[in-house]
Design a binder for these strands. Structure first.
Lengths: 190, 190
DNA sequence: CGTCACCTACCGATCTACAGGTAGGTGTGC
DNA sequence: GCACACCTACCTGTAGATCGGTAGGTGACG
C-alpha cells in the first residue's frame, strides 16, 4: 500500500494542475501554485513530474484515458449520448475551461499540446462521422455526408463552449446543441 | 507629417504585436519581441504604449474598428457576405490565429481580454440574429428562430477556425461553413 | 539482531533567464 | 529652446530547473 501512496499523490497533483490550468492556462500556470495546492514545494512537485511539460503531458494523457474509456463505447457514441455529454460538460465548467484554454493556447507556435490536439481532433472527427453514419447512413437528412457533417458537429461543441464560458447566462449550451442536432436530423421543431 | 510618423509607428507596432500574439499568445508575448520586430528597444515601445495591457487594448480596439467598419454595412451583413468573410479569414491565418489564441486565453480568470470578448460575442450574436431575420424572417427553414440559430452560427465559425488552425489540410473551412449555411437554409444539396 | 546499501519523498538554497517597468538621459527637428 | 522620439542603465519580481542534502523505510546478509 505504500506504492499506492505515490500514485495517489500523482493523482492529487494532476487534479490541482487541472484547476490551475483552468484558471491561468498552461503558460500562466506555475509549478509553485500547483504544488501549493497539494501541500508541496515546487521542488517536491518536480520529484513526481520532472518538468512542467511532463506535467502537462500527464494531464493530457489522463484526459485521453478518460474520454476513450468512460464516454466511448466499443462501437463509439450514439447521437443522444453526445447530447448528454454536452449536458455533462455544462455541469463541469472547470474541466471545460481547462481544455478550452489549452485548445486556445495550442494553436500558437511550438505549444506542447499542439500535437495532442491535432491528433485528437482528427480522431474526434472520425468518431463523429461514425456516429452519424450509424444513425443516418451515407446521407443525413440535411443532405450532408457524415464526413462533411463531422467537423461541423465538433465545431459547434467547441464554439458553444467558448460562448458559454464567457457568459454562461447568455447561452444555453445544451439547448443550443440540441437545436443543432435537430438541424442535422432535419426535423423541424414545434 | 511628423504627426503621421508617430501614428505610423503605432500602426507598425500594432501589426507586430498581432504577429507576436499569434505566435505565442498574449501571456507568452513579450514587449521585447514586439519591439524588436519594429526596430525598437522594449523601452522605446513603452514610449508608445505605456504598459503591455495598453498594447493589448489597442490591438483589440483596432479589431473592433476593423470589423464594425470594413465588414459591416449600415444594416449589417448579408448571409452571403458571411460566406466571403470566412473565405477571407481562410486567407489570413495570422489574424485568425491571433484572435483564436486570445479567445482561448480570455476564458481564464482575470484575463484582460475577457470583458472584450464577452461583450463582443453578445454583439456578434445579436448581429447574426439580425442577418438571419433579414434573410428568413422569424423562422428559419430548419425551424429555428434567428435568436436560437445565432449562437450556432457563431460557434461554427469559431470551432472551424480551431480545427483549421491545427490542421489546415484536414478541414476545408469555407466549404464546411457553406455546408452549415445550407443546413440553415434547409436546402439539400446535389 | 544489527548494520550496511540503497530507495523514496521530499525541502532549502541557489542559478539562470527573462519580464515588465522606472528614471534619467541624449539627439534631432521645428 | 523645447518637445518628441527614443536609448542606456537599472530594479524588482518571478519562473523553471539543478544541486545537494535529510528523514524515513526496506531488504539482505553476517
Amino acid at each position: 500500500m505504500v506504492r499506492t501512496r505515490s500514485e495517489e499523490r500523482r493523482a492529487e497533483i494532476l487534479r490541482a494542475a487541472l484547476e490551475v490550468i483552468a484558471e491561468r492556462g498552461y503558460r500562466g500556470a506555475t509549478l509553485g501554485s500547483v504544488a501549493e495546492r497539494v501541500g508541496l514545494t515546487q521542488q517536491g512537485l518536480l520529484h513526481y513530474f520532472p518538468t512542467k511539460e511532463a506535467l502537462l503531458v500527464a494531464v493530457l494523457e489522463e484526459r485521453d484515458r478518460w474520454d476513450t474509456s468512460g464516454g466511448r463505447d466499443r462501437e463509439g457514441w450514439r447521437l443522444d449520448l453526445l447530447d448528454s455529454l454536452v449536458e455533462y460538460n455544462a455541469m463541469r465548467p472547470g474541466i471545460v475551461q481547462t481544455f478550452s484554454a489549452l485548445l486556445g493556447e495550442s494553436v500558437t507556435d511550438g505549444h506542447p499540446a499542439r500535437e495532442f490536439f491535432t491528433e485528437r481532433y482528427a480522431q474526434v472527427r472520425a468518431s463523429m462521422a461514425d456516429v452519424l453514419r450509424l444513425e443516418f447512413g451515407e446521407r443525413l437528412p440535411g443532405g450532408l455526408t457524415p464526413e462533411r457533417a463531422a467537423p461541423l458537429l465538433t465545431a459547434v461543441m467547441d464554439g458553444l463552449q467558448y460562448q458559454w464560458l464567457l457568459d454562461p447566462a447568455a447561452v444555453d449550451m445544451p439547448g443550443a446543441f440540441r437545436d443543432f442536432l435537430r438541424l442535422l436530423r432535419g426535423d423541424a421543431e414545434e
